[in-house]
Design a protein around this nucleic acid. Structure first.
Lengths: 117, 117
DNA sequence: CGGTATCCAGGCAGATACTG
DNA sequence: CAGTATCTGCCTGGATACCG
């Protein structure tokens, strides 16, 4: 029986959920979305810039989240071999492509009707 | 290159992230997406139907995830006062509206290029 | 049938201190 | 500047047993 109106017809509930869960796992974590929204638009940000932009994050968490997103292919890391060291972070093309999808989710969240129970 | 920005101009990185995080929090949890994809399309499913559809879930987890989504206004619960008891679960209109947003995220996940490191 | 109640373990976030 | 290492506490999910 045809049920969930996904654009792609060849998904079961299980495969669709699995795909979305993959996406979720890459974006979960208290800081990843915040980092992402600071990088949308093609900007490059230094490690210390991001530290300042996210005042409550520890260095451990910042590098951890950046490395995970780099490993997932969302973030790219650009090392300038200088003294003192300089490292910039930006998005890959695929990472940039997240923007409209997150936008859709944001729009949905903001359409929430009052809970009229 | 056209920078990818949000459709709504009055978002900072912080407010946008906050909105999307709200959405994420409502959908996080090992079973919620799976439940959701079983309910997309306007179907009503009994508690025991869902239990059968998600063979590895415990009753505690099933009811917990359903209740949370009900509290968030995504799922609605329909109690039929009968003996034996019968309870059905479906989506609210707003819950249904999640489908295109998740579809976008699913499409993104499936566009992932090979990690050519 | 459709739930509650209770206990438990693992993972992840956070603080803090140290380093090339 | 841009990280690494270690310790700790909490929260979430899971197993199990019981109830209207």
């Amino acid at each position: 029986m045809v049920s969930h109106r996904l654009s792609s017809p060849d998904h079961t509930a299980a495969t669709a959920a699995k795909g979305v869960e993959q996406a979720f796992r890459m974006l979960e974590g208290r800081w990843k979305l915040l980092i992402l929204f600071h990088l949308f638009g093609g900007q490059l940000r230094r490690f210390s810039d991001l530290e300042r932009a996210l005042p409550d994050i520890s260095q451990k968490m910042l590098i951890q989240q950046l490395r995970q997103m780099e490993g997932d292919g969302i973030v790219r890391r650009i090392v300038h071999h200088q003294v003192p060291p300089k490292v910039e972070y930006g998005l890959t093309d695929w990472g940039q492509a997240l923007c409209p999808a997150l936008d859709a989710l944001l729009a949905w969240a903001e359409r929430r009707p009052p809970l009229a129970d």
